[in-house]
Every structure is written in structure tokens, then in C-alpha cells.
Write a protein that binds this DNA or RNA. Structure first.
Lengths: 192, 192, 192, 192
DNA sequence: CATGAATGAGAATTCATTCAT
DNA sequence: GATGAATGAATTCTCATTCAT
């Protein structure tokens, strides 16, 4: 790779970017990010050609981290419900552990800086999860996989918001959210 | 008595802000907003003391618009399910009709510019809707009104995303989303 | 005169200008001055064509006020020392009573806004005082009237500074300052 | 180690500020000052965080320069009159050589931009001179050191004004001013 | 005349990016 | 590669002045 030598600096810059963007939004300045990473303003541009590229890299890094979490200890042999619960719980816990990363990711997803290419790479990484959801979707609701995916995501987001507000009830809320999600899937396509 | 303050200009600035922020995010410049509203750069600051105040006003204006839509033709005499469906459908259709307003509102809600005071004013405006949701929450799931509110909101957001992608299926998707939501509420607090 | 009708407004604007400039220097804005005078931003420009003219008018008004004070109860029949003490005391007391006017006058005199014409008009107003000083100068130090004038002024300014710091000792300081001034004049032009 | 911070540029900015403020008062713009110093608008803010800090730095730089002049060739072994004459002459000549610096210093001293801290730092620098004046004050007029200080300063200012108007008579005026000052000190506290 | 909204040319300051060291 | 001073276009906001009401 043409990547510069010091992998640690690359990571430090992304990590500092998370911290700065969490606090100041996408207005976070490159020099603040550089300072937070312990490098000079100029060095940041050795690792990332410009700020937009940095933001896209950060977006992919965060998405990738979530994917890695989901892949870990994945119950490949379990029932579909077990798989779904694994994904659900993993995501909620990741977000609980890293609320600032989630906040940054939300801002990046809404921003006009993320390129179509980055969106597609992120999509590709989701493949494994997508397969589980496809299985779910197929077994339940016609072929509306994309819709199911979005519903699970948004219910998960809501669950996370509440876990963050009431950490003590984490397990209770995770369960309750998952039950709502599971129940939601019980509809039949033609039911009124 | 000089030129009286021009309500139309106030509205034009907010409207231009929606357009600019939709395209360029919160980086949208005040001078672009002013130009889009057909006023000079300085005039914007006659109507809003500074950019942050403009953003907060915009936030409240959008929230207020949604509330007005919901209040219109509200089935005060209907069953709880009828009321909930009215709210659901109204919101989804508003967002379908004004995707750029929704996008701007999402960005504002994530941004660090909205003051606590504005959040509280918005909350207060939601009172009517909140009451419906409270009724729902009480009749179903213990007292978890806040959680129910968030779930309905997030499911609605997801529904909107899909309506925007497939406008032809609008009614089908609205129904499907609402059924998922309704079904989700069927869980009992102690169910495993 | 082409002057607009309301003499009271003219005065109110000058009075407000004194207050504003005392607090914020020559950066004081015309709209702040107008508001302080109880008139609208536009009305100020009915009475003064522009800000520079306002500042020059203010300069002349303050100089004129001092002249009026000096002329009042002037001991035309007294000895030269009596006349000088009258002038000295009158000026010091005016400044003690109106420290903000003195502060504004100092700023105006240093500023680059006062026209040569205004300076000359002020000079002309001083004629009476100038005559006393000329008499002083002639009786003592050759013809160095201008220098004497400056010396008396600067000693007076210093005296004022101290009266303002220690109002209780006003009379003592006024006397002490005057004695220093009088003593200073005792030099002979060729003395070493 | 990148470009080291350029002391010459720092000085050039202060020097340009003197020139601009002399001509246009404290309204002198930062960009005019930057241009005059041969640096870009942004560079000025590398050396001074904001305009007010620049003005305070300039104030201290000018005061410091005067102090350095006074300290140079100070007749530490001379009589009190010799010391006083050294101070007097040094100051008058400095002002004659740098009338624009004196004009700027006068404006800064009257302005509302100079912080209390800067005033105190300037005061501290004056210590040596203050000691001479204290000696003067004590030997003559009770303990009125502060008053004596002010008198000498104001007489010096007057002297400078006249030297600037008639450079040919410089020495004559310096002597005459000093004799007036010296004579002024001859008063006894209780003399009428 | 009085008003104050409208104007737009600046003003101070920021910041992504470059480049000499 | 690393540094951080230098840059200057861009940005928010100000304010003397005008003019429609």
C-alpha cells in the first residue's frame, strides 16, 4: 500500500476525530483533530489528503468496527431468532459502550460529505448481517428485506437511546426492545 | 411609521435556510441563505440576531409545522387505534411531501446548536400528541410512554425512508409500517 | 437658520453622544447615540448630516460650554492673578463636575475626525481667555503666550485628574496646582 | 522544525500598527496593519490572537521603549536636579524623534481597550523613574509623589508639543520647560 | 418631519491547506 | 516524514446611511 508508515498515527487521528466531532459536530477543525492526535497540523494531511477524505475514512472505520463486533461469536448454527438476537444485542451494547462513536456516525450519515462510493463499501461490509436479515425477511414478510433491515435498525437505535439514559436497566430494555421487534415481524403481509 | 417588519421576509429566510441546509448541511452560509431569500446579507440579521438563533427558530418552526398538521382533522372521538393511525399517517405524509424539511430537521436535532430551551419549547408543543401516546402506553405496556414514543417515531422514520424510495407504494407501506408498530405494542411487560 | 425645528432633540443627541463616547470611545455607534437620545436612527441624520459632523459639533459644543463657564462671574476688574485663578478654578471645577465630558473632549482632540475649521472656531471662542493669558505672558515671559497657555492647560488637566481621585481634597489640590502654575511663571526668559 | 516564529515579523506588525493608528486612529483595520507589515491578513493573527491584544502589546512596547531610553546613560551619581533633567530631556527628545509613536500612545491611553493588567505592567516598568520622582517629591513637597509625577509629565507633554512646532528652538524650549517645572516645585505645601 | 427596515461595503477572525525548514 | 508558520478566501456580523411609509 501507498499508505504512510505509521499506522498508529493514522488510528490516532481517527480517534481524535471521533472525540472532536462528538463535541463540536462536523465543524471540528482539522488542527484540533491533529492536536488531539498528538501530531502537527501538517501531518494530518500526510495521512489524509483532505478533510472530506478523512470524514469518509472515519465513516468506513466506524461501520467496519460494528461489523467486526457482529462477526465475533456469531451463532452460525443457531436458529434465526438466536442469530437475530445476537445481532441486536451486539449492536446495542456496542453503542452503549461507545456513545460518542454512534453520535459521530449519525452525523456522518446525515452529512453531505459521505460519497456514494463510501456508502456502497459500507453496504458491502454488511453482507453477513444482510444475509441473516434476508433469511428473516423471507421467512416472514414476503421479500421486504430492506424494510425489515431498516426497522430493526431503527428499533435498535431507539433501544440504545434508552439504554444510555438508564444504564441500570440495560438488559431489561434490550430484551423489551427485541421482543417488540420480534413481535413486529409477526404481521402477515395481507393482514389488516 | 417606517416599513413595518415584514412577516413574509421572515418566512422567506427560513424557507431559504431549509433549502440551503438541505443541500450543504449546517455549513450553509448566512449570505447564501439571505440571497436565496431575496434579501441582502445584512437584512438577515434584522430578522435573526445571529446564525444560531436562526437555526433554533428554524427548528421550532419545523416542529410547529408538524404539530399543526397533526392537529388538523384529529379524530378526537375515535378509538385509540384510530388516533394513533391518524398521527402515524399524517407524519409520514408530511415527511413524504417535504423530504428536505425532514432532512434539515434531522440535522438540527443532531447538531450542537439547538439550545435546551428550544428543545423544551418543542416538547411543550407536542403535548397533544404526547397525550395520545400516553394513553397508548398506559393501555398496553406499563408506563413506558417515553419508550413507546421513541419506537413509534423511529418506525415512522423508517417508513418515511421507504415511502420516499417507492412513492407508488405509499399507502401499502404506511399500512405495513403501522401494523408493525401496532403489533410491536402487543408485547406484555413480563413476556419472555 | 436651516436648522431643523426641535432644538431639544439636537441637544439630546449631543448629550447622548457624550454618554456613549465616554463609555465606548469613538466607536460608539450612531444608532446607540440615537437610542440614547430617544430618537430613531434616521432622525439623527436630520440633525447632523453624518457622524463626522456630529463629532465636530460635539467638540465645539463642549469647548463652547467651557467658555461660557469661564465668562460667568469673570472678575474683569481684578488683578491678573485674580483673573488667572478664576479661570483655573472654573475649569478644574467644570471638569470635576463633568468628567465624562472632559474624557470625550480629550478623545475628540486626539482623533483624526476634527476638522481644521472646527479647531479654528474653538480657538476663536477662546479669545477672552486668550487675552488674559496674553496679558500674563506679556507681563512675565516675553511673548510666549501659546506656550503659557499650554502649560496652564496641562497643569490644570493634571490637577483635575487628582481632584477626581480625591474629591475631598478638592480645594487643597486646586490651590496647590495653581501655586505651582503661578510659581512656574516666575522664571525669567534668560534664567539658567 | 518548520519555520521558527519570526521576531522580525512581530516587530513589523507593531511598527505598521503605529503607522496606521497614527493616520487613522484606533479604527485602523487589522488588514491595513497586516499589509503595512508585509504579511497576509491571517498572519497577523498568528502573532496576536486578536486586535485588542495587539493594541495592548503595542501600548506596552511603546512604554517599554521609553523606559529603555530613560535608563540609557542615566546619571545615577548626579544630584536630583541632574537626574530630573536627564529624564525630562530624554523623554522630550524621544517624543520629538517619534511624534507618531507619542500620538499613538496618547490614543491608546485614552482608549477603553487597554486592560488593567497592561496598565499595571507599564506602571511596574516605570519603577526607576518613579524612584527619582519620589526622591523629588519627598525633598520638596511632602509626599505628593503622584501629583509631582503627573505635573512633570504634563509639562513635558506641553514642551514636546512646542518642540514639534518649532524644532529649531528645541534646546531653548527644553530648557524653558524644565525651568518652569523646577520652579513649580519650589512651592511649599502651606504657602499661599 | 419621524421612523426603523433595508442595505452592502467592510471589519475581525477562522481554517483547510501548503511548503520552507 | 514531520513540523507549524504562512496564506487568503470565506464567514459571520456590524454600522453609517438611505428611503419608503
Amino acid at each position: 500500500m501507498a499508505k504512510p508508515i505509521d499506522e498508529a498515527k493514522h488510528a490516532a487521528i481517527l480517534s481524535s476525530a471521533i472525540h472532536c466531532i462528538n463535541l463540536h459536530g462536523l465543524h471540528a477543525t482539522t488542527s484540533a483533530i491533529a492536536k488531539g492526535a498528538g501530531v502537527s497540523a501538517g501531518t494530518l494531511f500526510v495521512y489524509f489528503p483532505d478533510k472530506v477524505t478523512l470524514l469518509n475514512s472515519l465513516y468506513l472505520a466506524l461501520k467496519s468496527e460494528i461489523m467486526t463486533s457482529l462477526a465475533h461469536a456469531f451463532p452460525a448454527e443457531g436458529t434465526i431468532k438466536v442469530k437475530a438476537f445476537h445481532a441486536w444485542k451486539t449492536y446495542v451494547i456496542w453503542a452503549r459502550q461507545h456513545p460518542e462513536r454512534r453520535h459521530v456516525l449519525q452525523q456522518l450519515m446525515l452529512s453531505c460529505f459521505i460519497t456514494e462510493e463510501a456508502h456502497q463499501k459500507a453496504q458491502a461490509m454488511l453482507k453477513e448481517v444482510h444475509d441473516v436479515l434476508a433469511e428473516l425477511g423471507n421467512s416472514r414478510n414476503g421479500n421486504n428485506v430492506a424494510f425489515i433491515t431498516s426497522v430493526i435498525t431503527s428499533l435498535a437505535e431507539t433501544t440504545i437511546d434508552f439504554v444510555l439514559k438508564a444504564p441500570a436497566d440495560e438488559n431489561k430494555i434490550i430484551d423489551m426492545g427485541f421482543r417488540m421487534f420480534w413481535q413486529a415481524l409477526e404481521i402477515s403481509p395481507d393482514q389488516q
